[in-house]
Design a protein around this nucleic acid. Structure first.
Lengths: 289, 289
DNA sequence: ATAACATTTCGGTGAGCACCGAATCGTCCG
DNA sequence: CGGACGATTCGGTGCTCACCGAAATGTTAT
């Protein structure tokens, strides 16, 4: 009856956390994954340019990420499209980014500063809304009793009605009548925003009704005039959440994270920022992680 | 009005995902973190022995992990105690482990095989129940309408009532804003088990009512006779979930993970398992991750 | 067919880092 | 006080791996 047998292959399987983490431990690969958080499929060439590394280098990274299961690929003609493997992957990545320490990156141009500000204001996180707008939505819904903090963030009856009134009914089959609310720790504001099925449905609704518009090449969301009216009327969002220019949101070191203040902690001292600069790499176009 | 000013420190902050991942990308550090998932505080020496590396090496690893914010430390006399920084950290670690590929580890003794089987059956995961028992609990609660399945799991009204009937009411408000129902992807069974505040409360309840007993030195949980009665009566758990010997649970490569089958994918071919063996390291006592 | 293009393969190089042992520092105990 | 003990610092070593460029492969366009 005892299943342990000297003759048997005496091996067991254990999750190789280090191997998975190693995939993300490289700055270039991490940047690729963060880029793919927009939920879209990118070609190898686009990612090479984005990360500012040679195409051959990108190939190697993509091979690792795909065979490691973080990315899914689709070959079409001479192109290689990659995207995140699935929602779980995206969620774990955002959570991880929420736990990560901050890194200082230089801002080289006004355009880049604007880009960054827009990202902080409103962006997609795979299939839902993140950034100051996303956080404000979650906060407003909680304040108005549409979400209850009682047993975690759950949709209340009022919340279900509110969704139905908006025409969002498909967000909650779930025989038990409870809805699918999940939260993401936002990496810009370090506060919760809405994800899960409700988050995704809300995002779709907002897109379809032109409350927001998604930029083609980036994750940036822009709130339209109609969107401002809708968000004010429906949720009473303040102007700070509706205009990018008002949401300066200086990313504080770490306000109230239970994990302990992140001790601005540069993990390793630059050592010599000037040293090793003999082979100056092409400047990264988008120095966000 | 425009806040961008050439005179200004033109830097921005961005989460350094790669730096965080790098902390976990080393096998020894990953092993340390997995060990700390038992929720307790370990001394540096204990971890050194566990991971089978020199004390000096352990010191370096702990320095990195602490300054990276994953671990919290407490110095007492000549001892250095470390533990995970918080529940978020533990949760993210377990989620990550659930996404990770499998790695084959040799099993060298009958004792180790038994240890491993017990871990697969029931163990703590920081502050809640994991392993086959944890998965069975989540499954049974879902089947009985106490949890609704969707983007993860959510507590239903019936579920809230059921908890209240058990006398678990304090799982409530959550000052920390921690989602009350959260799921972990179990790394032994690759299926969801219950975490979050509800998972923690359930674990406490089970401990206090002697449904389960925690081993002193390991994460292993043992179900008592009273526990078997209770789990059968309350949730109709099958014997497979209640007796370790019945839960052989051969860890399948990856049954139904949306992320795509993990392609048993040894990320890097061993290359030469015999090669490089000139400096045979001390055998690890606990070869799990 | 030929040309332009997207990606891949391959060899080589340099930097980063996990590891150890020996010496040191500080704390606890007899 | 002196010895045992836990942890740390430091120098040195070897392996791993991210990177590039040049050449090759395969696909689409002219």
């Amino acid at each position: 009856m005892n299943r342990w047998d000297a003759d048997q292959e005496s091996v067991a399987e254990t999750p190789d956390l280090a191997a998975l983490a190693a995939l993300l431990a490289d700055r270039t690969r991490a940047a690729i994954c963060m880029a793919l958080l927009d939920g879209g499929a990118w070609t190898a060439g686009e990612l090479a340019e984005y990360a500012a590394v040679a195409p051959s280098t990108t190939t190697e990274h993509l091979n690792l990420l795909v065979s490691g299961g973080l990315l899914a690929e689709e070959r079409r003609g001479r192109r290689r499209y990659v995207r995140l493997a699935g929602p779980e992957t995206a969620e774990t990545l955002e959570n991880l980014a929420g736990l990560a320490p901050y890194r200082q990156v230089p801002v080289r141009s006004l355009a880049e500063a604007n880009h960054r500000r827009a990202l902080h204001h409103a962006r997609t996180c795979y299939d839902h809304i993140a950034g100051a707008l996303g956080v404000a939505i979650a906060a407003a819904m909680t304040e108005r009793g549409l979400l209850a903090r009682d047993y975690g963030l759950v949709l209340t009856g009022a919340g279900a009605n509110w969704l139905a009134a908006l025409g969002i009914s498909d967000a909650g089959p779930s025989a038990a009548g409870r809805a699918h609310v999940r939260t993401c720790l936002d990496w810009t504001v370090r506060r919760q925003h809405l994800s899960g099925a409700v988050g995704a449905a809300l995002y779709q609704h907002a897109l379809e009704h032109d409350w927001i518009v998604k930029a083609v090449t980036t994750r940036i969301l822009t709130v339209t005039a109609a969107g401002r009216r809708a968000f004010r009327a429906q949720l009473g969002l303040p102007d700070e959440a509706l205009y990018p220019s008002l949401a300066l949101a200086p990313p504080r070191p770490a306000p109230d994270l239970p994990g302990g203040p992140w001790s601005v902690a540069v993990l390793r001292e630059p050592g010599g920022e000037a040293a090793g600069g003999d082979r100056a790499p092409a400047q990264r176009r988008h120095p966000d992680q």
